[in-house]
Design a protein around this nucleic acid. Structure first.
Lengths: 152, 152
DNA sequence: CCGACATTTCAGAAATTACTGAAGAGTCGG
DNA sequence: CCGACTCTTCAGTAATTTCTGAAATGTCGG
């Protein structure tokens, strides 16, 4: 028990959960490798081996994980291969990326309000929607601040 | 300006944003109709007309919106057709549905921790992940409570 | 500079997801 | 009860997304 293959299974299950959460399939599986590896950093080739996936798809996954800030490229450790690892604040970052969605919702609601007339029931609904996402956008920074304090 | 076709465009743009946020295409477009209609309630047929989609796909979308609690079926208004409308707390509900994802993350992390040994770097990473989602799960109810207070 | 190796890019293939259309089930008015 | 109308279900199809494989690019050691 508690051997590597059990960890691998747990990693694949976690990847499925990440997919539920909105990540793309290959990005999720790649992120799971970053979580479950017993090394400090991994290379694209190692990930491809572990996942039995093509170098191409791993390259794409790494690119997108870098873009959203979940992983980081390590200062070249003398090798020809690039090394990557999970960033310290990866989870807060993943959660924060929701803010983008919230802002888009806010703007969409505002656009809808602008397109409706006073007294149209649609305007009332869109105003409620706008109010909620405005509230959220205001609360999330404080929430993350509390996390960083509590977490040290 | 501010005519119906402009509203329709705004509705389709909002649908795209909802898709970004994780809804399925048809559910998102249907929800947009519920937001932008100038009626108090709409029927499946009206939605199908508005979206130029088949009755089947609208039926599926309504079913899923009902399931997650974003819309409600109205007490039969004497007509043969079913009437639906956006629920009052739809946006809070949509946001709350994230909690399910958070709990799944928490469990996935716990499973990973159980599968790793003391001293494995993977265990440290998984413990951090677990801590973050535990924090989130604790904060969200309070956040929604603040919303309901402020909102009345 | 050159050779070897790792990564990236991208067009095409595979797999998944979403929609349609038609048949069936349910329901209301008459 | 019957007929008309609406909604639901589901198999097939269409569209989209995702992955692969090979060629191109980049980089390091020598």
């Amino acid at each position: 028990m508690n051997d590597r293959s059990e960890q691998w299974q747990a990693a694949e299950r976690l990847a499925l959960t990440l997919i539920e959460g909105g990540l793309q399939r290959m990005s999720a599986r790649t992120l799971a490798v970053f979580l479950f590896t017993d090394q400090d950093s991994v290379t694209a080739g190692e990930i491809a081996d572990q996942l039995d996936a093509s170098a191409g798809s791993v390259s794409g996954a790494i690119k997108s994980l870098l873009t959203v800030g979940l992983i980081e490229r390590l200062p070249a450790p003398g090798s020809r291969r690039e090394h990557y690892r999970l960033r310290e604040d990866a989870w807060a970052t993943l959660f924060t990326s929701q803010n983008t969605v919230i802002q888009a919702m806010l703007q969409a609601a505002a656009a809808g309000i602008a397109a409706t007339e006073e007294g149209d029931p649609a305007r009332r609904r869109l105003t409620e929607m706008h109010g909620f996402y405005e509230f959220l956008l205001g609360e999330l920074p404080a929430l993350l601040h509390r996390w960083h304090q509590q977490n040290g």
